[in-house]
Design a protein around this nucleic acid. Sequence first.
DNA 1: ATTATTGCAAACGCTTTGCACTCCC
DNA 2: GGGAGTGCAAAGCGTTTGCAATAAT
Lengths: 151, 151
Amino acid sequence: MKYQKEHDIFTSFLKNGKSRITPERFLVLDSALDYKGHFGADELYINMRNNNVNVSRATVYNTLELIAQCGLIVKRNFGDNRTSYEKNFGLKNHDHIVCTNCGKITEFETPKIKKLVEEICKNLDFEFEFESYTFNIYGTCKDKNQCKKFR
Amino acid sequence: MKYQKEHDIFTSFLKNGKSRITPERFLVLDSALDYKGHFGADELYINMRNNNVNVSRATVYNTLELIAQCGLIVKRNFGDNRTSYEKNFGLKNHDHIVCTNCGKITEFETPKIKKLVEEICKNLDFEFEFESYTFNIYGTCKDKNQCKKFR
DNA sequence: ATTATTGCAAACGCTTTGCACTCCC
DNA sequence: GGGAGTGCAAAGCGTTTGCAATAAT
């Protein structure tokens, strides 16, 4: 199977949480892993419908949340009032540059940011359990072939 | 007048952009500056109505955008799929810790992040005009008196 | 058998839009 | 007087919810 390792991870995550193993959940997982780049829940739902993979909207939303919880995809937020997801490529953490004009998203690696986050959490004056962070840089990309502002 | 300086700044911003000076825009500005903490556009609109300051929803939304453009307030995004604003206190840049459980927002100062952003933008392999960044840390705050998870 | 999960459609919250009216320049 | 700005209500969009039907344990 194409995503055997991910299936195994998701399976044990579900069993661990006393959640049920359903075919729909794995259909969503496969589609999410197949998706190139960032995607919204609704976007994935439509995409699946178009490919004749019929899982209800509610199930897609719920399942993406589960897959994010178990770490196979990552939840993102690019300031457009919707939740985006993307495949998690393991340890290599990266953040995003977003063109506010054409929507282009560029990824960059930030070895320094992780230390900074740890440092900040450690120095707080109240107890805080870290979950995640978002670090986005916004601006305009001046890509003459793509960016609406400059072409 | 209470916010004379801000009125002046907004006035010249509007004139500069060949936009009109209207009473509604200054009602929104005053209400935004009076608001304690972060607020959404709709939240401000309701708040204004409650105080018998009657400006239409559309105008509140449009005007907040303008005020943010001229820098008197800052646009934020805390991962809840809505746009938040807050008064801009000038140079002292700060970022946010968000409790994903009770919604509490804690501000912290980050002298290091600005340098990091500059460094990243400088080393990109394409031309990019920086506008802003978001840096939020998510987790649970374990405030026994407030946080739903621990009380 | 029990009960979590599913599918569907309706409701939700925030935001944007269309259009006639207003009033700043 | 012209056109940007306003107000209102309706529509839009992504997301969540309620409930009956289904299927995993």
